[in-house]
Every structure is written in C-alpha cells, then in structure tokens.
Simulated assay, not measured.
Amino acid sequence: MPKTTNTPSLVILDMLVGKEWRHLRLTRQEAKAFIRKTPNHRGYQITPIPDEPKR
C-alpha cells in the first residue's frame, strides 16, 4: 500500500476585487478563509492544482 502524505492540496484562487484580478496560490482552507475575509469581491474562481507525480 503506498504511503500518503498529509500535505494539503493546493488551489489557484482568482478573485475580482474592484477592477483588479488577484491570482493566489493557496490551500483550499486558506482560499475559503480569504474569500470570507474579502467582502468587497465581485466574484472568484477556485482551480485545483493537480499533484505532481512522484519520481
């Protein structure tokens, strides 16, 4: 059975704040917290980053 690491998966958060797009690389929990802390955003998109294969 392969060992699994307990590292959180990363996502890309694209958020429209005012007239500017913010492009952030965060964990899923950090992205949710950032969305809650930014009440003046006009929209967002969360894109998962696929895990890199181990060599």
Rank of each mutant, 00 (worst) to 15 (best):
residue 43 G to P: 01
residue 18 G to P: 08
residue 46 I to A: 02
residue 53 P to H: 07
residue 2 P to E: 14
residue 29 Q to M: 05
residue 5 T to S: 15
residue 39 P to A: 11
residue 54 K to A: 10
residue 47 T to V: 07
residue 44 Y to F: 12
residue 32 K to V: 01
residue 55 R to P: 12
residue 16 L to S: 04
residue 2 P to L: 13
residue 32 K to G: 09
residue 4 T to M: 15
residue 42 R to L: 12
residue 26 L to W: 00
residue 15 M to W: 03
residue 54 K to D: 11
residue 18 G to L: 09
residue 16 L to V: 06
residue 32 K to T: 04
residue 16 L to H: 07
residue 54 K to H: 09
residue 17 V to W: 04
residue 51 D to S: 14
residue 19 K to P: 02
residue 33 A to Q: 14
residue 43 G to C: 02
residue 34 F to W: 10
residue 22 R to A: 02
residue 36 R to Y: 06
residue 2 P to A: 14
residue 40 N to T: 13
residue 33 A to F: 05
residue 17 V to L: 12
residue 29 Q to W: 05
residue 51 D to G: 14
residue 34 F to D: 03
residue 9 S to I: 08
residue 26 L to S: 04
residue 45 Q to M: 11
residue 10 L to C: 04
residue 54 K to Q: 14
residue 46 I to Q: 00
residue 24 L to G: 00
residue 45 Q to R: 13
residue 29 Q to V: 12
residue 29 Q to R: 09
residue 23 H to Q: 07
residue 27 T to A: 03
residue 1 M to Q: 13
residue 21 W to E: 06
residue 3 K to I: 11
residue 21 W to L: 07
residue 40 N to S: 13
residue 49 I to K: 07
residue 21 W to N: 11
residue 45 Q to S: 13
residue 52 E to V: 15
residue 36 R to L: 08
residue 51 D to F: 15
residue 45 Q to H: 10
residue 38 T to V: 00
residue 18 G to K: 07
residue 5 T to F: 14
residue 49 I to A: 06
residue 1 M to G: 15
residue 13 L to T: 02
residue 46 I to T: 07
residue 2 P to W: 13
residue 21 W to Q: 11
residue 48 P to E: 10
residue 31 A to C: 04
residue 22 R to E: 08
residue 3 K to Y: 12
residue 7 T to R: 13
residue 49 I to W: 07
residue 48 P to K: 11
residue 48 P to C: 08
residue 26 L to M: 08
residue 46 I to G: 01
residue 20 E to Q: 10
residue 52 E to T: 14
residue 10 L to N: 10
residue 12 I to P: 03
residue 26 L to N: 03
residue 31 A to R: 00
residue 40 N to F: 02
residue 38 T to F: 03
residue 24 L to A: 04
residue 41 H to Y: 01
residue 27 T to I: 01
residue 35 I to S: 06
residue 38 T to I: 00
residue 48 P to R: 07
residue 14 D to V: 03
residue 10 L to V: 08
residue 29 Q to K: 11
residue 1 M to W: 14
residue 13 L to S: 04
residue 21 W to D: 08
residue 50 P to R: 09
residue 33 A to N: 12
residue 45 Q to V: 12
residue 7 T to K: 15
residue 41 H to D: 01
residue 22 R to L: 04
residue 9 S to L: 13
residue 4 T to R: 14
residue 7 T to M: 10
residue 13 L to H: 03
residue 50 P to S: 07
residue 28 R to N: 05
residue 11 V to D: 08
residue 30 E to P: 00
residue 1 M to Y: 12
residue 25 R to N: 09
residue 2 P to H: 14
residue 13 L to D: 00
residue 40 N to I: 04
residue 51 D to C: 12
residue 44 Y to D: 02
residue 53 P to S: 09
residue 53 P to W: 04
residue 47 T to S: 12
residue 38 T to G: 06
residue 17 V to M: 06
residue 10 L to Y: 11
residue 35 I to A: 01
residue 22 R to W: 00
residue 32 K to L: 09
residue 51 D to A: 15
residue 37 K to F: 02
residue 4 T to W: 08
residue 42 R to F: 05
residue 29 Q to H: 12
residue 8 P to S: 13
residue 8 P to F: 09
residue 18 G to A: 04
residue 35 I to Y: 03
residue 9 S to W: 07
residue 33 A to M: 10
